[in-house]
Write a protein that binds this DNA or RNA. Structure first.
Lengths: 247, 247
DNA sequence: CGCGGGTTTGAGTCCCTTCAATCGTCGTGG
DNA sequence: CCACGACGATTGAAGGGACTCAAACCCGCG
């Protein structure tokens, strides 16, 4: 039933077990470390931790001990508030780093939950802090990843602060498209791993509003969407849609 | 006319010129570096760069060369969009680090503008990357600062995504209150360095709405506000206000 | 086949924006 | 000292976008 050639950013059947043959090498922090130091087997780096769908990689308040890179599957991070009003603060897919929120306080300040069965590399932070020639590049890589996360948060804030709901959804789809493309998947046809409610939470709107705008974009011929399956029909129009208000 | 004892987080008349007598020592990255290594005069660290009100510390697209810590005064960062819809993405005061947005791409992705006459320390990033025993703690400090920034962005996203305008404004005031308190100023009485429009942009609303809610909070007796001067009369009620909807 | 969760869609309401006018404040110059 | 202008802040009226509540629908699954 599922088209086998469709980009879904899900686990590939045979997972690479060594970094040297890992497709994420360019984006993966762990691989940097392993490759730069192939002999150091004593380093307790776990490069294939399995996390089942719906399971927590870490929870708010957990002691921070490690950074993670997504090898396969995808995650959401959820900020929990006292009174039950949560919000999805990020979606993460293969190659993305997770866990940096905990470095500052040494406590995680959000939940990281697998949207599907997934695998991660675990990078114990104590190892990162140890000095060594080969770690210099790793430090740099981590800082770049954190900087990138700050920039991405800026952009989400921009989205939440200045755009109306339809524009946010369009921007969200374009962002997903880019990220799929960067990972070698089709930028125009993909499967959403998150629910409408999770999208709504991330974009600061009601899930009914998400549905409405999906329908609207479809009726306008910009996208084709049925349930989690999305096909972008008119990227240019979608990009125009993001800026619709400021013409 | 202006109460001289009012906390304004502005430049003190006599600026400390050495880190050893700098009041920000606890929070300041530069001071860590200098103190850990007082003899290294060849390190090109500028610890008293003056930036006039309205001047740019850096602009979007500038090459990233250094991190900055605010010694006195305050800053805003502004994300610029293609079509003129900007947004304030952060306010920074004494002790805060600026510039981490540029580490990833080696280009700054926002403007940093002084809200008042200010002084910053400049930490050339090339120096940071050089290895050395005494740099280890600095690296750690920078990563903690970046992690803290990610957490703060999370919270702003939470604000923008889940709270109505009045709650956002209340949360904003409480956040300022905390930050002033952390710097030794009064948590209940302070002067805003930013305009209504800048607050509105940061909180993702209209400046008219900011004014309206300031008036509303005043009429309810939670705060006293005239122009930039704010006095918090009922912190507990203000905190309740943040969660007003989820009871 | 019935169940449950997620999705879509409708109707009504309200919060917030938009547009605009007024007011207050501050700096400048007559 | 006050008039003046510029800019920010406040406030009003009107309109609309998004939420709320709720019902119907769809789909996967036991």
């Amino acid at each position: 039933m599922g088209a086998p050639d469709l980009a879904v950013a899900t686990s590939s059947p045979g997972l690479p077990t060594r970094c040297s043959i890992c497709g994420l090498r360019e984006a993966c922090l762990t691989c940097d470390l392993m490759l730069a130091n192939p002999a150091r087997r004593e380093e307790p780096i776990v490069n294939d931790l399995h996390v089942g769908q719906g399971s927590y990689l870490y929870r708010t308040g957990d002691a921070f001990t490690a950074l993670y890179t997504v090898r396969s599957g995808s995650y959401k991070t959820v900020q929990t508030m006292e009174l039950g009003r949560d919000q999805v603060t990020g979606f993460y897919m293969a190659g993305d780093m997770l866990g940096a929120d905990g470095i500052g306080t040494e406590l995680h300040d959000c939940d990281a939950i697998a949207l599907e069965d997934s695998h991660v590399c675990v990078i114990p932070y104590a190892q990162v802090l140890k000095q060594g020639r080969y770690k210099r590049d790793l430090q740099n890589r981590i800082q770049k990843a954190m900087s990138g996360e700050i920039v991405r948060k800026h952009n989400v804030m921009l989205l939440l602060g200045t755009r109306r709901t339809e524009e946010r959804l369009a921007a969200f789809l374009l962002n997903l498209s880019e990220r799929f493309a960067a990972r070698g998947y089709s930028p125009t046809e993909f499967v959403l791993r998150m629910t409408r409610r999770e999208i709504a939470s991330y974009l600061g709107m009601n899930d009914a509003t998400v549905s409405r705008h999906f329908s609207k974009l479809r009726s306008e011929g910009l996208i084709d969407v049925q349930n989690k399956r999305v096909r972008i029909l008119d990227i240019a129009a979608l990009m125009r849609c993001v800026n619709s208000k400021a013409d």
